[in-house]
Amino acid sequence: MVMNKEEILEELRSTLSGKTFDALLPPIIFALINAFFDLTLATGAAFVIAAFLGFFRFFKKQNWFYALGGFLAVSLAASFAYFTGSAANYFVGSLVSSAFLFLVAFVSLVTGKPLAAWLSHLTRGWPLDWFLRKDVKPAYREVTIVWTVLLFFRFFIRLIFFQRGSATELAFVNTLSGWPMIVPVLVLSYIYGIWRLKKLKGPGVEEYQRGDQPPWKGQTRGF
């Protein structure tokens, strides 16, 4: 099945919205200022940038939820780095979250409720029972397996660079292993997921909700 470029871009826009820029900018600014000046100035700059993004989103009546979350995360990370006297500790939170996401993905596979299915259920509001059907769940399980491997790899790489103790290197690695890695993974997951659902020959979510009987057209949009 061939999907057009507009369909994939629309799916990405609904997933990413404006949060990518809000998440990437503060740690990059922190690392650069720390590299050229000092930890105190870097900490202050991270606070200011995160606060500015939050106010900007709010006054522009854009989605400021992620900017607020980013401000809180930056506040904790920058404070921890400042009071411990180590700029590398700014990235402790991202290291912990990487480990946590890997564990969540792994446990979801073990329990038979794939993370990809749960995330789609929460964001799209589709019935959870549909995701767990035998002619639907394999697509979400296989995507989650790939995610689990990549999440472990991301955690392992971040751990190695965290042990090296360079904030600049950590900012570079965290940035590359963040949205620049996630975006192509989401695109490929979407393309593979739709293709796999078609091969499984189960009902599309709307057909399932209507109680249609086979043969089904299957899921043609959204994963």
Rank of each mutant, 00 (worst) to 15 (best):
M3I: 14
N4R: 08
E6G: 10
E7V: 07
I8R: 07
L9W: 07
L9M: 11
L12K: 06
L12E: 09
S14V: 14
S14G: 15
L16K: 09
K19G: 13
P27R: 02
I28S: 10
I28D: 04
I28F: 11
I29D: 04
I29Q: 03
F30Y: 09
A31H: 02
L32N: 06
L32Y: 05
I33H: 05
I33F: 10
I33A: 05
A35H: 15
A35W: 13
A35M: 15
A35N: 15
A35E: 15
F36A: 13
D38Y: 10
D38K: 02
L39V: 09
T40A: 14
T40S: 15
L41T: 15
A42W: 00
T43C: 01
A46F: 07
F47C: 10
F47K: 10
A51Y: 08
F55Y: 04
R57D: 11
F58G: 11
F59S: 13
Q62L: 12
Q62V: 06
N63F: 12
W64A: 12
W64T: 06
W64N: 08
Y66C: 03
A67E: 00
F71G: 09
V74A: 03
S75M: 09
L76P: 05
A77V: 07
A81D: 02
A81Q: 00
A81E: 01
A81L: 13
A88P: 08
A88D: 07
N89G: 07
Y90D: 05
V92S: 08
G93T: 06
A99K: 03
A99S: 03
A105M: 08
V107R: 10
S108R: 00
S108T: 07
S108E: 00
K113S: 12
L115K: 05
H121W: 13
H121G: 06
T123K: 15
T123P: 13
W126M: 14
W126L: 13
L128W: 15
L128T: 14
D129W: 04
F131I: 04
L132Y: 07
L132Q: 09
R133P: 00
A139F: 12
Y140G: 00
Y140E: 01
I145N: 05
I145Y: 12
V146P: 08
L150G: 08
L151S: 01
F152N: 03
F152E: 08
R158E: 09
L159P: 07
L159G: 12
Q163W: 15
Q163L: 15
G165I: 06
A167R: 00
A167E: 01
T168S: 08
L170T: 06
A171Y: 02
A171M: 05
F172E: 06
S177K: 09
W179M: 01
W179T: 01
M181I: 01
I182K: 10
V183G: 04
P184A: 00
V185N: 01
V185Y: 02
V185S: 12
S189H: 01
Y190F: 13
Y192S: 14
I194M: 09
W195F: 14
R196A: 03
L197I: 02
L197G: 00
G204Q: 02
G204N: 03
E206N: 12
Y208A: 02
R210Q: 07
G211C: 11
D212C: 06
P215Y: 06
K217A: 14
K217V: 12
Q219C: 04
G222Y: 04
